[in-house]
Design a protein around this nucleic acid. Structure first.
Length: 266
DNA sequence: TCTTTATGGTGAG
DNA sequence: TCACCCTAAAGAT
C-alpha cells in the first residue's frame, strides 16, 4: 500500500527500532545474501524517506535503498520468517526485546556507498513530506510539463510520493479535470495543490492509511473514525454517486493508469 | 479454495 | 504500449 505516506511512516517506525543501533541483517530467501552480509553487524544511523524511496544510512557510509513497488511489504515480524523474505533486519541487544523487520517483494533492495542517496534522489522532484520540499520547485517543474495534470502528478520527477489514489483524490478536491494540460494550470492553483498534498500526506502518515474525505462531509467526528468504505471521494468508486453532487463517478485512463472523476465537480 | 487485483516502475519492442 | 516482477488482501466459487 505504498504511496509516499507509507514510506515516511515506515522510516519513522523503523527509526524507533534501529536508529543509532547495531543491526543484524540476513536474507532468508537468499536473493540478497551478499547485501545482507555487508550490512550485518553495522550500526544504523537512521532511516530516511524521499517520496516512495526508503534509505537506511549506516555509520561506515553504506546505504540501503528500498523501493516497495506495487506489492512490496516491510513489516515487523515474528521469530520465524514466513515466505520469501528478501531482507530481515533484527535488533538484538541485551536488555531490550528482540525485534525483527521482514522485507518481502520489493521492487528495489540494494546496498551502495555514500553517493547512493544523492544518485537516487537527483531524479526525484520535491517531496511534500520533507522539510526540504520546495513549493516553488514543484510549481516550476509542473509548468515545464505539457502532459495532462493527471499524468504530471504521477511523474516522480515532478513531485515525489504521489500515487494513483492521491492524484485522483486531489484533483477531485480541487475541482480540476485530470485531462487539463499541466502547463495551463494557474500558479496559484498549483500552490494550493502542493499545500493540499502536504496536509493530506501528513494525515496519511498519522493514520497509516489514505483518508482524503473531510469528516464534515459525511458527518464523522474526525478523520480517524471514518470507515474504509467512506474514506475516499472518487478512487475506485466508478458508478457510485459523487459525495458532493450525486453524479455517478466515471473511470477512464490518464497517463497509462486508471483515473476516476466526477464530471460535474471537475 | 480458487482467481483477481493493486496505492509502482522498468525495460523491451 | 505491454509484459513483467511475484506479495497478499479481496472477491469469486
Amino acid at each position: 500500500m505504498p504511496e509516499g505516506h507509507t514510506i515516511h511512516r515506515l522510516a519513522r517506525d523503523l527509526n524507533r527500532t534501529f536508529r543509532a543501533k547495531r543491526v543484524e541483517a540476513s536474507s532468508p530467501q537468499g536473493r540478497f545474501e551478499a547485501g545482507a552480509a555487508r550490512l550485518d553487524g553495522q550500526r544504523c544511523c537512521e532511516f530516511e524517506a524521499w517520496g516512495k524511496h526508503l534509505f537506511a544510512l549506516f555509520d561506515q557510509g553504506d546505504v540501503l535503498h528500498v523501493h516497495l513497488g506495487l506489492i512490496g511489504k516491510f513489516r515487523k515480524a515474528g521469530e520465524d520468517p514466513v515466505g520469501a523474505v528478501r531482507l530481515r533486519l533484527t535488533h538484538n541487544e541485551a536488555g531490550s526485546k528482540t525485534t525483527h523487520w521482514d522485507l518481502r517483494g520489493p521492487m528495489v533492495c540494494t546496498v551502495g556507498g555514500p553517493d547512493l542517496v544523492e544518485d537516487v534522489t537527483a531524479k526525484l522532484g520535491p517531496d511534500p513530506l520533507r522539510k526540504d520540499g520546495d513549493i516553488e520547485e514543484f510549481v516550476a517543474r509542473v509548468r515545464r510539463k505539457r502532459v495532462a495534470i493527471g499524468a504530471a502528478l504521477l511523474d516522480q520527477s515532478v513531485i515525489a510520493g504521489i500515487g494513483n489514489v492521491y492524484r485522483a483524490e486531489f484533483l477531485f478536491i480541487l475541482g480540476i479535470d485530470p485531462r487539463t494540460p499541466a502547463n495551463q494550470i494557474e500558479e496559484d492553483d498549483l500552490r494550493t495543490l502542493w499545500k493540499l498534498a502536504v496536509e493530506q500526506l501528513r494525515r496519511g502518515v498519522r493514520l497509516n492509511r489514505i483518508v482524503t474525505v473531510d469528516p464534515a462531509d459525511i458527518g464523522a467526528p474526525d478523520a480517524r473514525s471514518i470507515p474504509n468504505t467512506e474514506r475516499l471521494y472518487v478512487y475506485k468508486r466508478q458508478g457510485a454517486p459523487c459525495r458532493t453532487c450525486a453524479t455517478p463517478i466515471e473511470e477512464f485512463d490518464v497517463g497509462g493508469r486508471k483515473m476516476w472523476e466526477c464530471t460535474t465537480c471537475q
